[in-house]
Amino acid sequence: MDLDAVRTVVTAADAGRFQDAAAELSITQQAVSKRIATLEKTLGVRLFTRTARGVKLTIDGQAFLPHARGLLRAEERAVASVRPGRRALRVDVIGRRLAPAALLHDFHREHPEIELDVVTLFDVDAAINAIRAGTIDASFRAVTMPGRQLPDDIGVARAFDEPIQLLTGPAHELAAARAVTPAELAGHRIWVPGIVPGTEWAAYYDALATAFALTIETTGPDFGTEPLLDTLAGSRSLATFVGERTHLLWPADHDLRRIAVCGPTPVYPHSLLWHRDNPHPALATLRDHLSPERREPPAAETWTPAWA
């Protein structure tokens, strides 16, 4: 498959206009159209449709896009394999709004000379497989799940214990509280859509609910962060849990409230995973940045699952 055409598809999908893709690729708009048309002919499907604002992916284009990105990553790995030490440090952060991304951003501010490639994988198994395959250099995960035994070639170190907060709308019974205890949350409906059984975050919330007799609901489809915040803003009974360093934005009229949970403070145990034989020179710098000596002291009383 013509990787220049694949790269053109990905660039056009991200840009939303062939003209912008042409500028980014330093080719003509006609060349962009020709590359995509040739690839569409090879595949036997249309990848884009034109709109008043530019172009958008068809259903087939949406199905093809993640595989196209995978092809380009494979190309990067092939090139990097003969240029050791020159590629970016590739790190999995679970989600770009979550605490690991904030930790990596702190690292980037302290070491701007180190090039980073930030990726988001699904769960700890995907992260371990990617580390062993060499497609990423490190991953932030909660890994000490019940019955889990890490492979001997995977290194792990605790990176950050993130306090969990309660997020409510202005009409919620607890909205005016500056802090609540886990025991005070018993009987309240806490909605955390998107919890997938078998994942590390599912294990964490299962342990949290059991420890404090909490009702953590996962019902309904996960439409993303914005619909969740919209629902909370108008609800008198629903609340959710968020990490202290989870980056959230919402309209001013939502008037959502972040409420500290303490006595004890539940914390989510983020760890860093890496391959013990990984020679990337920046990996040691990242590990040193996350060393225990550099961490802020924990809250007076914290809770983590027994497996952590």
Rank of each mutant, 00 (worst) to 15 (best):
P112L: 01
A157H: 10
P163W: 04
T285R: 14
V196Q: 09
A284W: 11
T120V: 14
L57A: 06
L98T: 07
T11Q: 12
V82R: 12
Y204S: 02
T218H: 06
R46Q: 15
E226N: 15
V45H: 00
P151Y: 04
E293M: 13
H280M: 03
A15N: 05
A37P: 04
A80V: 02
R148E: 07
A233F: 09
T11P: 09
T49A: 10
T285A: 10
P305S: 08
V267N: 00
A31L: 08
L238K: 07
D4Y: 10
P251L: 03
P292G: 07
T218Y: 05
F64T: 01
F107M: 01
S271Q: 11
G198D: 04
W307Q: 06
L103R: 00
V124G: 00
P264K: 03
P269G: 03
I154G: 00
P151M: 04
Q62N: 11
G220T: 05
L72E: 01
I94C: 09
L174P: 01
L150F: 05
T144K: 14
A175C: 06
I164L: 14
T38A: 15
V82A: 08
A74K: 10
D206Q: 10
L25R: 04
N278T: 05
V156I: 11
A176Q: 14
A284F: 14
P227I: 01
R287K: 08
R295P: 00
E75N: 09
R86M: 13
I59Y: 11
D277K: 14
A21K: 01
